[in-house]
Amino acid sequence: MYERKFGEVILDLKGISLSFGAMRVLNNISFNVRKGEIRSIIGPNGAGKSSMLNVINGVYHPQEGEITFRGEVRKEMKVHEAAGFGIARTFQNIALFKGMSTLDNIMTGRNLKMKSNMFWQAIYWGKAQKEEIEHRKKVEEIIDFLEIQAIRKTPVGRLPYGMQKRVELGRALAAEPEILLLDEPMAGMNVEEKEDMSRFVLDINDEFGTTIVLIEHDMGVVMDISDRVVVLDYGRQLADGTPDVVRNNQDVIDAYLGVPH
């Protein structure tokens, strides 16, 4: 494998602790994400991986710790602000807009880029129409990229699970994010679908230079495509490093990788 080079740290998490009532979900977690890398978070169910993503994009507010994003220390961020900062994500349990078509779901991902006001949209003419067509072109590129041309007009509620996961990825991509958070994008997929999805993740990273934070259970995939891996175990941080370092870490072997489950 060739040597991959990464840019500066764009997201730095220091001493993050998060509790719900008496339950401590994240305990003093620190790691960073460099521009252009594929950064994986692994750990057993309930380890706090999804909660970590929720902390990154402002859904959960940690009680302790500091988040530095693009050089700025971030205080409380509102949920809708994350997208404006260039953070997009997909969900462990698909969170698509079920009543809308594939096309509309992905178009909605571009909502922040649409500038024409309600008046122009009401007459659907001039600025508004030009904008719709412009963004439609972009969205069609994404549809081509994800190979979902055949389902563009299908309401997503009627799509099979694997396709829904793809559309959700498309919606996140539509925002042209700087960081893409993917929460178990391959869960519940067969081998072929997993291969497709891995290829998309790699291509997104490669072609668009998008930084990716990935949660995934399939160790084969994770070790294959990640640049660095952080391991969580019931709120604790067990290890952090390249796949090779993590694979050979004794704590990780004892607590997680070595134990069959």
């Binding site: 994350a82 997208a83 969900f91 969170a95 009543g99 909605t108 909502n111």
Partner: peptide, 27 residues
């Protein structure tokens, strides 16, 4: 015209899954 434009998609997004709508930047 409104419901096939951005505002209409935002309305439907709020209807179908408000938390996901917020995460993609809809206020």
């Amino acid at each position: 015209n409104l419901v096939r434009s951005n505002i209409g998609r935002e309305w439907m997004a709020v209807r179908d899954m408000d938390i996901a709508a917020e995460i993609i930047g809809i206020k």
